[in-house]
Every structure is written in structure tokens, then in C-alpha cells.
Nucleic acid binder design. Structure first.
Length: 406
RNA sequence: GCGCCGGUCGGAUAGCGGCUAUUCCAGCGGACUGUAAAUCCGCCGCCCAUCGGGCAUCGAAGGUUCGAGUCCUUCCCGGCGCA
């Protein structure tokens, strides 16, 4: 298995790369589609190729729970969903946050949404801290399902599970993806400097343990950079992780208090990494973020946006997003996007038809919406790669973004 | 004509004397970033409003009661049954 940078953009840090594996060659930058439980929700493997999907990321924690003892007989993700795809598994480090602090306080790693009432852009730190204070203690025990120690993490979301770096690597080796991640502790934007530092140092120790635990040589192991939205910590983490013998790097954790600051974190971390190794941005992928990531030299990134938003009725087009469950689409016989070549649009799915399927809670609704969104994001990436190859990355970016907001 | 049953927000419902009239659907608006969530959150009689406040309202009109969507009387409307 090999990663090579084949071309650098003339104007930005964007780069064209290629992963060569037994399953094939995969050009980057690539949007990694999320298939947490070993399957992209609503899609089967023929749908993956029909939507131009190149890479899928599953989750070690969730699959481990799903498979139980059966994990020893698991044929490997390269066989189950990865036939012809690049596969990854996340280590479970995100669940340390999402099933713990995140679940307790209804927060995400970039936003703040108490009860879903507000968007991340409107965040006011003091208001948030005050809000958190009212919740701490009242909800901790019933909602926070995670206990973290230096040894590892105990999860109580269903029964009890214990995970640590050694176990996470063992699980990820059994799952057999092409790219696996060190076990880390993801923190939120609302953790203090001192806690974030402590968690980062723990993540560094776990990085060393993850490397030591590795026994297979046909998988890339990525180290994860933490440090929250603190420049000192990000620089320290990036430097530390880059000096360990990882095959690639991932930028994870809290990316700041408001969306506008998210990519500062990436800017702080990237200069200290080794430029010939692949860099993954964990869990990021709004349409604007795709551009910001690529032009900073990110090779791969994953996000639930295309798939989750599809199931929730939000459809992506080159003019932006629309919610197909709105009443105005009731009898709309136009395609989801004019001229779209995705499997849903080509098979005659209209806005009105999809509206109807969503309203009758037909499972096909999420299926068609996912086909469309995944195809949309994958096509965008394909066009981005071509634009880098053709020395017109910035032109294409400008053209795309002006159409998006028109 | 007689008898029975029923009339509650756009539709469907709960409510059977105690004050904020329930829930579901539809509608409107919002969220979703290493998937706990094909999910969640607002609004959804009218008027002003920043919190909030004012006024209505359960087919209609009377009545009983401290208090009525809930009980009584009459009327109107719908369904069913009998003539």
C-alpha cells in the first residue's frame, strides 16, 4: 500500500494524490462516505459504485458492538463493503466525546445546539458556558455514558464496554480496513485549556501505545492531532504526532467555538506535518468546508452530511440545499436537479415523487435522497481533482461558489 | 315524524364539572460536520410584544353551578335505525 502526491496546485496548497492498494488506485482529494456500521445507510455495494463512491469509513466501536464475538470471523471490510473501494475505520475516539460530553450537553464538535434551537454561527461563549453550568450535575449521570482514564475508556451506552489503544488497534486489524486510526480522546469546543491539554497529552501517550499495538503491515495507521482551538496545543500536537512513525495524519477534535474559526486549527497544524504523507480531516464536510480543506492540502475527509441530511430530506445541488419535504414540492415534477446524472434523477425521481415518498415514510425516500447527495459530493470531488490536474483549481472554485449562492 | 348516536384549530382525535383543551397528520420555520438520532427542535384561533401580555374559543342560544367543551332545555346540522 502506497500514497504518492502526484501534483501540487500552482496557486494553493491543494494537491492531487493517489492511494495504491490491492483494491485499486484512488485519487485524492477524496470525500470519504460514512458507513459507521459497515454499511452506508440505505445503499448497497452496487449503489456505491453508481454514486462514484471511492472511499468509505466505518467505526471500530460501533462495529465491535454490532459483531460481538463474531468479530473474529469477520471477513474484513475490504471484502464486505470495500470491494473496489478504499476503506477506513475510525478508532472509537470520537465516541469518547459523542457518547460522553457531547451527549450530555447536546453539543457537537463545531456547533452548539441546545435542543436544536440555534445554529453554530450564533454562539456566544459566555452564554454557552452559563448554559452548560445549568446542565452539569442535573444530567451528567443519566446522559453521559463515558468514563475516561489514562488506561482507557469505559462506555455505558448499552451495557458496558471498555476500549483502550491496544484493543482499538486489535479491533481495527480484525476489521481490516486499508486505513486505521490511533485511539484518541476527542474534546469539545467548551473544554477549558487545561483539560484540553491534559486530553491531548493522553492522546499522545495513546498514539505511542497504538503504534506499539500494531501487528499488520498492510494497513496505514494514522496518528491523530488534538489540542482543540488552542494554537500552542495544536502546534505541540502536530509536532509530536509528526515525529512518530505514522503512515499518515488526521486532524481531529474540537475545531473551535464558531464555524468561522474552524480552519485556523488546520492552518496551525499542517505546517508541522510531513508533506509526503496523507492528511485526513476528521468529520468535516459541508460544501464550503470541502473547498477550505482541499486548498489547505487535506487529502481525505469524511462527514455524515451527504448521507444524514439525505435521510432528513435535505438535497444538495449546485445551487445549494433544499428541503424536499416542504409543501411546495408536493406536485413538482422537475428532477431533484436539472441535468443531474445521479442514479435517482436518471431513474425519473422528481421532487414531487420524493416528497410523496418522504410523507408516506417510505424507506425508498432516504435511499433516493442518499443516492443523489452522495453522487453530488463525489462528483464535486471528481471535478475538483480534474481542476487541479488542469491547473484551474481556483477558477473552478470561484465558478462553483458563485453558482452555489446564486 | 319518532328513536339512537354524534358535531372540539385545515383533517383526524382526547377530554365526561375544576380552571394552561390532548395527541397525530398536514402546513410553516429551523437544525444536523471522525452517525446515540431515515432524527431532533420551534410555531401552528386572533391582536400587540423582547421576556411577556391582552382577547377569544369546543354547532347556536339559553339555563344549572363558585366554576361548563363536559350537566339540563330548545334549536340547527350530519349519520344510522324505525315509520
Amino acid at each position: 500500500m502506497r500514497f504518492t502526491v502526484i501534483k501540487k496546485d500552482k496557486d494553493t496548497e491543494a494537491r492531487l494524490g493517489v492511494f495504491e492498494t490491492e483494491q485499486g488506485t484512488f485519487e485524492t482529494p477524496v470525500y470519504v462516505i460514512v458507513g459507521t456500521h459497515g454499511k452506508v445507510k440505505t445503499l448497497d455495494s452496487s449503489d456505491l459504485s453508481a454514486t462514484k463512491t471511492q472511499a468509505v469509513i466505518s467505526n471500530a466501536y460501533h462495529l465491535w458492538k454490532d459483531l460481538g464475538d463474531g468479530i473474529s470471523f469477520f471477513p474484513g471490510l475490504r471484502k464486505t463493503i470495500g470491494n473496489g473501494l478504499l476503506t477506513m475505520t475510525d478508532s472509537g475516539g470520537f465516541q469518547v466525546f459523542s457518547l460522553g460530553f457531547g451527549r450530555e450537553h447536546d453539543i457537537g464538535k463545531v456547533g452548539f445546539f441546545p435542543g436544536g434551537k440555534r445554529g453554530g454561527e450564533k454562539n456566544i461563549i459566555s452564554e454557552i458556558r452559563a448554559f452548560l453550568r445549568t446542565r452539569v450535575g442535573r444530567t451528567r449521570n443519566e446522559k453521559n455514558c463515558v468514563v475516561i482514564s489514562n488506561h482507557g475508556v469505559r462506555f455505558f451506552d448499552e451495557g458496558e464496554k471498555y476500549l483502550n489503544p491496544e484493543l482499538s488497534i486489535e479491533i481495527q486489524e480484525k476489521l481490516g480496513a486499508d486505513i486505521i486510526f490511533a485511539f484518541d480522546e476527542c474534546t469539545s469546543p467548551f473544554h477549558s485549556f487545561s483539560y484540553t491539554k491534559k486530553a491531548m497529552e493522553r492522546t499522545h501517550r495513546w498514539a505511542v501505545r497504538s503504534l506499539k499495538a500494531k501487528t499488520r503491515d498492510d494497513q496505514f495507521l494514522y496518528g491523530i492531532i488534538q489540542g482543540g482551538a488552542f494554537k500552542d496545543l495544536r502546534v505541540a500536537s502536530s509536532t509530536y504526532i509528526a515525529n512518530l512513525p505514522f503512515d499518515g495524519y488526521a486532524i481531529g477534535g474540537s475545531l473551535g467555538n464558531v464555524k468561522a474559526e474552524m480552519f485556523q486549527v488546520v492552518d496551525w497544524a499542517i505546517p508541522y506535518l510531513k508533506g509526503n504523507r496523507p492528511v485526513h480531516l476528521l468529520g468535516i464536510g459541508s460544501i464550503e468546508d470541502v473547498w477550505k480543506a482541499v486548498e489547505r492540502g487535506i487529502d481525505t475527509f469524511d462527514c455524515v452530511i451527504p448521507t444524514r441530511e439525505a435521510r432528513h430530506g435535505s438535497l444538495w445541488t449546485s445551487r445549494g440545499r433544499f428541503d424536499v419535504t416542504k409543501g411546495k414540492y408536493m406536485n413538482d415534477e422537475s428532477p431533484l436537479e436539472e441535468g443531474c446524472a445521479c442514479p435517482a434523477c436518471s431513474s425519473g425521481i422528481t421532487k414531487g415523487k420524493l416528497y410523496e415518498l418522504f410523507k408516506e415514510k417510505n424507506m425508498k425516500s432516504g435511499y433516493y435522497a442518499t443516492l443523489h447527495n452522495v453522487f453530488f459530493f463525489n462528483s464535486l470531488m471528481e471535478n475538483i481533482r480534474e481542476s487541479i490536474r488542469g491547473d484551474r483549481f481556483l477558477e473552478f472554485k470561484k465558478e462553483f461558489l458563485s453558482r452555489l449562492n446564486s
